[in-house]
């Protein structure tokens, strides 16, 4: 394998393992310097890019602190849901604890959205029970926005429901949007936003008022890679602050970022 090809692949493999961008640059430069000095072939000096990236990610993980998982926030037992003759949820159990970001996976039609709607209290199960301790924020997969209103007006409207006054709502909404790499106050009305930006707005609205439980339905459809990374950083901060989140997605790259996975 040619030197540059190896280095490029190595950088990609590091990124795929959640190594911070700032770290990647240094690690790749160091490896490249090593190759220059030894005049060795990269495969001989380091092995395959993926295997070496795994070792490096492992070494970097030495300081990673596992999340502290605490008391139960959401407990669903034996949930059943039918639409006409079609069974959508069949005996589903779920527990969500303080300090957890849990992934809800499954192909389209397996009831991810239905489960989230039931947990959010928007739909009634045909059987089973939901126990909820704390406040809930919910971001639907689409819809939920008012096309004629600007993001800041959404903040005020949704913030009021969470007990935030106008100023606090705008401030908090703006800060959350910034964490997702989005300047919400400069944005046009919701109807003119791109799909990815609408998702960001939905996530921000769900998180307004810092509810104990975040329920997000396909929050990163249409987001670019940078935004996906920012989204997870926001979630990690969220759960480290003692809250929790349940994220429905069929994106497999999310598996390594979440603390647990529930497959429907």
């Amino acid at each position: 394998m040619r030197r540059q090809t190896w280095l490029d692949e190595f950088a990609l493999e590091l990124a795929a393992r959640e190594v911070a961008r700032a770290d990647i640059a240094g690690i790749v430069v160091e490896a490249s310097g090593h190759l220059d000095e030894t005049a060795a072939a990269p495969l001989e000096a380091f092995g395959a890019p993926a295997a070496y990236a795994e070792l490096v990610a492992d070494a970097l993980g030495a300081q990673r602190v596992p999340p502290r998982v605490g008391e139960v926030r959401v407990a669903a037992r034996g949930l059943h849901k039918r639409y006409r003759r079609h069974t959508v949820l069949d005996d589903v159990d779920l527990e969500l604890h303080v300090g957890e970001a849990v992934l809800l996976m499954g192909r389209n039609g397996r009831g991810k959205s239905t489960l989230l709607r039931i947990l959010a209290g928007l739909a009634k199960p045909d059987g089973g029970s939901v126990e909820l301790h704390g406040s809930v924020g919910y971001a639907p997969q689409d819809g939920g926005l008012i096309d004629q209103l600007r993001p800041a007006e959404h903040f005020v409207l949704f913030g009021r429901a969470r007990g935030l006054d106008r100023k606090a709502a705008i401030q908090q909404g703006r800060r959350l949007a910034e964490q997702l790499g989005w300047d919400a106050l400069a944005a046009p009305v919701a109807g003119e936003l791109s799909g990815g930006t609408r998702q960001k707005l939905n996530v921000v609205l769900a998180a307004l008022g810092e509810p104990d439980v975040l329920l997000l339905d396909e929050p990163y459809q249409g987001l670019d890679l940078d935004s996906v990374q920012r989204f997870w950083e926001l979630l990690w901060e969220w759960r480290d602050a003692g809250r929790c989140a349940l994220v429905a997605t069929h994106a497999h790259d999310a598996i390594e970022r979440a603390d647990a996975v529930l497959e429907l």
């Binding site: 690690i27 490896a31 090593h34 001989e44 092995g47 070792l55 490096v56 492992d58 070494a59």
Partner: peptide
């Protein structure tokens, strides 16, 4: 000493 063991050790 292979680079593949050296740098991860330093990084750790």
């Amino acid at each position: 000493v292979a680079g593949g063991s050296l740098y991860p050790a330093l990084l750790r």
